[in-house]
Amino acid sequence: MNFVHFIELLFILMILILVGLPLFGKYSGKRLFSDPDANLEEYKHLQVRKEEVLLSIKELEFDFKTDKLSQVDYDEMRAKLEREAVGILERMDGLEKLGRKTKKSAAQVST
């Protein structure tokens, strides 16, 4: 057996160990992710949307200051965006309440 064969053997052993060990480890049979929580998914989505709407308001302010739109349009768009943001905030509050409740009950179950 020459040197190259030895390295080849090492490679095969390396694969077998790295790939094989997890299959017999302590996680065997456990789940990778729990079932997606629809509320959490929506909340995550809304967090991003909220940020985008807030950034849009900032941008609108800036566009107004750099003279890209008139006072009338600015007021109207700003009101619209703020309505949108408030809508998102309300929905997020609702989801937060639900989330806290389930978390509490989950904590009670586990103790």
Binding site: K50, L54, V86, L89, E90
Partner: peptide
């Protein structure tokens, strides 16, 4: 939405805070 008047006022304050924090 329920109790629109109060909550809207609260929300617009929060909006302002969030915008400042941004």
């Amino acid at each position: 939405e329920i109790s629109k008047e109060d909550s809207l006022g609260g929300y617009s304050n929060r909006l302002k805070n969030e915008l400042d924090r941004l």
